[in-house]
């Protein structure tokens, strides 16, 4: 079971990080970042197959691919922004973390505007 392996490794990494934090806090931060990366790299393979499955399904019921790829893009941006924000929070830099989250929100908003416009057009057509 991967989850047991992941939890065991993360506990070891946490102990290592705490040990090193007193002397070299910057290297302790690196350990936590690398552990997060490792866990995500193992999970990403499963996520990729789920995404392929979803894409195949959506292709069949002929929803416009632009919307689906926009959703995927938004999920990707949200994940990366959250990853960066968490790393900054770990290091104690809360202000930088909130700036990253702000940037992520703005980028996602910019991506979502075309879809909103399409929705508005649709609604305007419906209302006589």
């Amino acid at each position: 079971m991967e989850i047991i392996q992941i939890v065991a490794i993360s506990i070891i990494a946490v102990v290592l990080a705490v040990l090193i934090r007193q002397h070299r806090p910057e290297i302790a931060l690196q350990i936590s970042v690398v552990t997060g990366l490792l866990i995500f790299l193992t999970v990403i393979i499963k996520l990729a197959s789920v995404l392929e499955e979803l894409q195949g399904f959506v292709g069949r019921i002929n929803i416009d691919m632009a919307y689906i790829s926009t959703i995927f893009r938004i999920v990707g941006i949200a994940y990366i922004a959250e990853f960066g924000a968490q790393v900054c929070k770990d290091a104690g830099e809360n202000s930088i973390a909130s700036k990253i989250e702000l940037a992520g929100k703005v980028i996602i908003l910019v991506l979502a505007v075309p879809i909103l416009m399409a929705l508005m057009e649709l609604i305007i057509q419906i209302i006589p």
């Binding site: 970042v33 690398v34 990366l37 790299l41 990403i44 893009r73 990707g76 994940y79 990366i80 990853f83």
Partner: peptide, 15 residues
């Protein structure tokens, strides 16, 4: 490792 992660996320989410 971080660049590898970003490469993976980029290709997977069509970013």
């Amino acid at each position: 490792m971080i660049s590898e992660l970003f490469e993976n996320v980029r290709t997977m989410f069509h970013l």
